[in-house]
Design a protein around this nucleic acid. Structure first.
Lengths: 243, 243
DNA sequence: GATCAATGCTGATCTGGATCAGTCTAAATG
DNA sequence: CATTTAGACTGATCCAGATCAGCATTGATC
């Protein structure tokens, strides 16, 4: 796959118009490709040559475990998203990262990243923008857990995923395919798996959206947006914000 | 107040041992001091000369409002914390920032900050560490909203505040003074104000912790830590991590 | 010093979502 | 091909926390 068609280039290109030079710098970033199987924990701790990754294909999730046995999924990473970038720059990351599906990811070293930032300011801008969007999504997630009911939470989550996937060309007009189980949705939305099932049925019965057999289809996109109180602005846009 | 005694210097010094030179660079950062009255929204939007602040005294909160009228407080900023740093570096910030009490804050321009990073790598490291801790706290907040019950949430929140305040010298062995109303606690913890009141009473009756008349006192610190499932590691430490 | 707005506090009632205890199906495994 | 196992799905019951409807106290404002 040419760099122009990579999920990361598509995503960054949506924020900032990138020249061939910028794309060249971007493509030089990727050292080597690695594969991860589902549930095979991606652990950075203790590694001396810590490095970050960009997801090329597959889905990843980051979560925290509680002493009481519960699990809270903080975020998912889809193609074009960075993996463990923060864990490298800083030393935090007491949270776990594990693949949801088979995952291919390109390794990036911090020094290469810094070099790329120097060589292509536009690339740097685009990446900061992307990071800022990720940040905003975590906050939005927090707001949902605190102040939205189960149905709104689910609706918002499915819409957000849609916007993200469309940005990297992994969704069509009608919807997208989604490898998440109802248990994962539960641990994401702070619900029980049982209730997730009921919420999905309700959305289906109300003719808003159908999530079955690994595929999410929007039956009434506008209705769903309204129900979720979804802010289209921060994810919906066509053409680069910075030309 | 000398820079050595400022909350920010105390906080950063807890992460990285700073020389007098580092502290000098730090003190040069502050352009001018500004005051904000409670509920007088601190808005950065539309300003051409956007700048960030460091809180010198007082408490600030950042929150999001929902279409349905609800409010979710994302985080509080206490002395030594950055204000609107992200809103300046990127252009996000659809969330609101407003003082809880009277606030004094020192202005910082982005260019000065970048200069300081160049002049003092140790300072840069300390600031990234601090930023990383803030990041971790938001994630911890998210986890709490998703997977902890009301009492654990409250206990965790009060303990986290304690650790933060102690770091900047605003808490003593027994507890700290806290200007937050029960309504604010409710909007932070995703609860109703009524339930916040009951949870506080329960903590008091159980001999764990007393929050009355603007003061939080720990009656059984270890018991509270255990109840909250509080991870002392990421906030509790004495002496710089990086000497 | 009367009034009013915030804030703390309380009992009674209601409900969204958890929990328990399953069934059903399809895909993986021996 | 029989048997696990993971995941989707369901009904019955329970409970944590919301909501409603107040009262009490304090401090600010006229």
């Amino acid at each position: 796959m040419k760099i122009h068609d990579s999920p990361l280039a598509r995503k960054l290109g949506a924020f900032v118009a990138l020249s061939d030079t910028d794309l060249g710098v971007l493509s030089d970033l990727f050292v080597r490709r690695r594969r991860f199987a589902p549930q095979m924990e991606i652990v950075f701790e203790g590694q001396t040559d810590q490095s970050a990754f960009v997801v090329a294909s597959g889905w990843v999730c980051s979560y925290k475990l509680l002493a009481t046995g519960g699990r809270q999924i903080v975020d998912f990473q889809i193609p074009g998203d960075f993996l463990g970038l923060r864990s490298v720059l800083f030393r935090t990351s007491d949270h776990n990262i594990e693949p949801v599906t088979k995952v291919e990811a390109s390794e990036i070293t911090v020094s290469d990243l810094i070099k790329a930032f120097r060589d292509s300011p536009r690339l740097a801008t685009a990446m900061l923008w992307a990071a800022s969007r990720d940040e905003a999504m975590v906050v939005e997630h927090l707001v949902g857990l605190g102040r939205r009911d189960a149905v709104q939470r689910m609706a918002h989550f499915l819409l957000e995923l849609y916007a993200r996937l469309r940005l990297v060309g992994l969704a069509d007009r009608k919807g997208y395919s989604c490898p998440l189980t109802q248990y994962m949705l539960a641990d994401t939305l702070g619900l029980s798996a049982v209730h997730v099932n009921r919420v999905l049925r309700q959305l289906r019965d109300d003719g808003l959206c159908t999530f079955q057999k690994g595929r999410v289809v929007f039956d009434d996109y506008d209705g769903l947006v309204k129900l979720a109180g979804f802010d289209r602005a921060y994810l919906d846009h066509e053409g680069p914000l910075l030309a």
